[in-house]
């Protein structure tokens, strides 16, 4: 079974079609990157898959559960790091992490264990007691991503996770994402081609809400006859459907 499957997924805002009859299949345990220029419909797709936005038409299935009719089941499986940093500003970093654990019904012991693990992975120890809203943008970002991971989701959505991170933090996050490979299915969006290339098992390119191409980095390079991945991406987007 496909971990995620979208069937004719459509989202319209008035007369703008943000996502247009999207048919996508993502396998269990793979890291799938969704690439596309600004406004291509990546975030809108993620919002539908994570039950925030209702599709105008079509449906999507997460582990077989419909995002429109079985959102309760879907929400138990997923972790989301939204494109915009999403932390509770007046809570400390630790309280933010505890909040998510509490919502997922973790016991006190498990919560403490997870917080310890995550603060090691994200080197959050120094900021655990500080108010999240008072941290620098990059640090808020780390907290926001840690909040997505802390519930040990089977399916992880990372919408431009490395936006605003410094080089070191970015490489650390890459390592962390790699360490999750195989354990969780990951859907990632990014504007950094080297990031997509370094991390993805497969890549989907969308433009104006339509899926233009899907494949591994190598497949997309062969498809377009490009030498490097960035040129492959550019020619897919510029020439439209292949």
């Amino acid at each position: 079974m496909q971990e995620i499957k979208t069937v004719g997924l459509v989202k319209k805002y008035k007369n703008l079609t943000a996502v247009d009859k999207l048919n996508l299949e993502i396998h269990q345990g793979e890291l799938f990157s969704l690439l596309g220029v600004n406004g291509a419909g990546k975030t809108t797709t993620i919002k539908m898959l994570t039950c925030i936005t209702k599709p105008t038409d079509g449906d999507a299935f997460v582990e077989g559960y419909s995002v429109t009719k079985q959102s309760e089941q879907v929400k138990r499986l997923i972790g989301v790091s939204p494109q915009e940093t999403a932390v509770a500003p007046n809570l400390s970093v630790k309280e933010n992490l505890e909040l998510i654990c509490g919502i997922h019904g973790f016991s006190k012991e498990k919560t403490q264990i997870r917080i310890k693990e995550l603060s090691e992975q994200f080197t959050l120890d120094a900021v655990l007691r500080r108010k999240a809203g008072k941290l620098s943008g990059g640090w808020q970002r780390r907290v926001s991503i840690a909040m997505a991971l802390i519930s040990e989701p089977k399916i992880l959505f990372l919408d431009e996770p490395t936006l605003g991170l410094d080089v070191i933090a970015r490489h650390e996050l890459w390592d962390m994402i790699r360490s999750l490979k195989g354990k969780a299915t990951i859907i990632l969006t990014t504007h950094y081609m080297e990031e997509a290339e370094a991390l993805s098992d497969r890549i989907g390119v969308i433009k104006d809400g339509k899926l233009l191409a899907v494949g591994t980095v190598e497949e997309l390079k062969i498809m377009t006859g490009a030498n490097d991945f960035e040129s492959a991406f550019v020619s897919i987007v510029k020439e439209g459907a292949l």
């Binding site: 039950c51 925030i52 939204p82 999403a86 500003p89 998510i100 919502i103 519930s151």
Partner: peptide, 14 residues
Amino acid sequence: ESAFLQRLYTTPLS
């Protein structure tokens, strides 16, 4: 107005 509530909308909170 913040992305925080949207994040919570993706959790099991009803």
